[in-house]
Write a protein that binds this DNA or RNA. Structure first.
Lengths: 194, 194
DNA sequence: CATTTTGTTGATTGACCAGTCAATAAACAA
DNA sequence: TTGTTTATTGACTGGTCAATCAACAAAATG
């Protein structure tokens, strides 16, 4: 009973199913058939829309990154002062859909994928560059020349907290995670390190 | 032409081959046959000594962790002051065999593995707990009650820098990585954040 | 109505891979 | 010497999975 205009719906369902499956099972055991089943269709249809498993993963990755990017832009637009913008950048990494267990685990798998897939690597690098750039710009009015190294440190810390969360058992606590990063940033901004 | 007493030699060769293979190809495409070939034997022999692919990966993980643990103990024994011990803990994560590209990439795969394998998860958690405990004890004389949260922050930052290195293209620069973490720690120690 | 476009799947294929096993051979023990 | 332990592999199996394809069904188009 085919209905027209299904393509975007199917694509979306597959991408979301891929993220959940990646988070739950890990890239090793994720099969196209499983993803398709979770998305409520046959695996042949998944191939019809994405052509290959790799393309599906890349699409899932782009989706995660684009949602994150949109949330970052939204948060930045609201922040009036440099301090507010920094807080927004940190908070947005640890709130909403970004900090769901599934998504965090999917990120981890994307990192592994990026080690052998050029397109995945480029995507991830682009995200990192943007995050750093945003952090630098927000930090510059506050710390001047130290902005670059502080931005790098903050980016590393965000990734580290993320990584830890991927392995944690308890429910993810975004507020606590954000506080940890902010506590450091406060100390570093007011500190006298180079 | 079998020689006696080969078991430890074979096991060692397989473990090292597994780490290299894991770092170069990623857990998705690592097969027992590839590992065995790199270690200079048939896959049947690999099964003879390890029983399963999973057991081989776990052994590789234990090896990486035990080398790291030994280096940590060595560095701690040398440090006389709390400051020296903290520096030692940070430095040791970014020097020697721990910071080789292969090993860093293998770590990343271990993180993914830990999401679905209980033993791997326990191993990784044990390592994290030890690192935190060491950092806490070294920090306590310097910052008192803030030791716990600073230790958590330092651990996150070490992991984050590690993660970034796994994705980086340039040659790994352990000195720079260590300096980044130390710069933060200096600021945080002298800072007035909670 | 006839044709084209879009959606959909069951069945199939070809490859690969984890794990097993029987067989062989050197070293050692009796 | 005969038997036992240790080392080693080639050949095999059972299963799985990515990817393909032919065929069918509904809507749109003419």
């Amino acid at each position: 009973m085919p209905k027209l205009g299904m393509e975007p719906i199917r694509r979306d369902a597959l991408i979301k199913a891929a993220i959940i499956e990646l988070g739950q099972v890990g890239s090793l055991d994720v099969t196209v058939a499983r993803i398709a089943k979770r998305a409520g269709m046959s695996s042949a249809l998944a191939y019809h829309y994405f052509g290959s498993k790799e393309h599906m993963f890349l699409a899932a990755m782009r989706h995660v990154l684009s949602v994150y990017g949109a949330e970052v832009r939204g948060a930045l637009a609201v922040g009036e002062t440099p301090q507010a913008r920094i807080r927004a950048l940190v908070r947005v990494s640890f709130t909403g859909s970004n900090f769901r267990r599934d998504v965090v685990a999917a990120w981890l798998n994307f990192y592994v994928m990026a080690q052998r897939n050029d397109q995945a690597e480029r995507l991830l690098r682009l995200y990192q560059a943007r995050l750093r750039s945003n952090l630098r710009h927000a930090l510059r009015p506050l710390v001047g020349g130290r902005a670059a190294s502080l931005a790098d440190g903050a980016a590393a810390m965000i990734d580290g907290v993320y990584l830890h969360e991927a392995l944690g058992t308890g429910e993810p606590d975004g507020a606590r995670a954000a506080r940890a990063v902010e506590t450091w940033l406060d100390a570093a901004i007011s500190g006298k390190a180079p």
